[in-house]
């Protein structure tokens, strides 16, 4: 029994667990919008595109999150501009821009090593997170949560029916930028927890899991946030025992929860849809 409490005896573990839970929750809240808007590739792209900012921020002595955020937003703006000008498909433009940004980041990191080493940035290393970095994560999460709680209805309308939002006089250009900024900000916050390659999981999986379980957006937000936070907490906790990558554990856990929902969800799960199809095949006897 006491074995189960061992992780809590280490201050770094407690910090890691709590921070993972927080970031898991914030990312999950945002993931509801990302999955419905169909922005998974964008999430993946921005989480890679923030990397050069980390390196540059270190060179000029800024907090890493500021540099990373700026790099992420710049990448997003470049994508928008390039897409409009070149007429290429959006997914291709995103692919080009984020890989270039990311490659630039890798090159900079290989030329000028910073406080966050390459491994940390790519795979995350929440166990070694420093207190100033925790502070940055807290600030980013706090601001993101505040903005999301205040503006989630507008963002929902924007994701659901952009034309209607515009005809009501909502500033959809602003909402678009807001969603991109939130995406970049949470990608920055999640960078140290799970690493650039896996941030997109935090930004997609909980939302999709919740989407399988409910038809109401309000409930979807609640379910996603709880799943995300719980996976963050438990994943970090488990990683102590199997002594493996924390980010990997969190994401594997999230994927597992998704798969469970995929099979067993009451209405949209595979078991139920199979059953419905079987019933439909039976001769009608009413």
């Amino acid at each position: 029994m006491t074995d189960l409490l061992i992780p809590f005896e280490y201050a770094y573990m407690v910090k890691a667990i709590l921070v993972s839970g927080l970031i898991g929750g914030v990312c999950a809240f945002l993931s509801c919008f990302i999955t419905l808007k169909g922005w998974s590739l964008m999430g993946d792209a921005l989480s890679h595109a923030v990397v050069p900012g980390v390196s540059l921020a270190w060179l000029v002595g800024l907090p890493f999150s500021v540099g990373a955020f700026i790099a992420g937003v710049m990448a997003a703006l470049t994508m928008g501009w390039l897409k409009k000008k070149s007429g290429l498909r959006e997914d291709a433009v995103i692919g080009i821009v984020f890989t270039s940004w990311f490659a630039l980041g890798l090159l900079l990191l290989s030329l000028y090593p910073s406080n966050l080493n390459l491994r940390t940035i790519i795979f995350g290393n929440i166990l070694a997170i420093s207190d100033p970095d925790i502070l940055q994560v807290l600030i980013i999460s706090g601001v993101s949560i505040l903005v999301l709680v205040m503006k989630w209805r507008d963002l929902l309308l924007y994701c659901f029916d952009e034309v209607h939002a515009r005809s009501l006089g909502l500033n959809t250009g602003f909402l678009h930028l807001l969603l991109l900024s939130l995406l970049a900000a949470t990608a920055v916050a999640a960078l140290q927890t799970v690493g650039a390659c896996l941030v997109v999981a935090m930004l997609v999986t909980p939302g999709a899991t919740a989407y399988l379980l409910t038809d109401r957006f309000g409930k979807m937000l609640v379910i996603a946030t709880i799943t995300g936070a719980a996976c963050g907490l438990i994943g970090a906790y488990i990683s102590y025992y199997i002594n493996g990558s924390t980010g990997g554990c969190i994401v594997v856990l999230q994927t597992f929860v998704f798969l469970v929902a995929l099979v067993f969800a009451p209405k949209h799960g595979l078991l139920n849809t199979r059953r419905q199809r079987r019933l439909a095949a039976l001769p009608q006897t009413s």
């Binding site: 922005w39 998974s40 896996l198 999709a208």
Partner: peptide, 22 residues
């Protein structure tokens, strides 16, 4: 399912990558 394709891809590849990483 009714989940968008890009989301499904995001879930599957990160899940596999995370598993590989562990």
């Amino acid at each position: 399912t009714r989940i968008k394709e890009d989301t499904v891809m995001g879930i599957v590849f990160t899940g596999m990558f995370a598993f590989g990483l562990v």
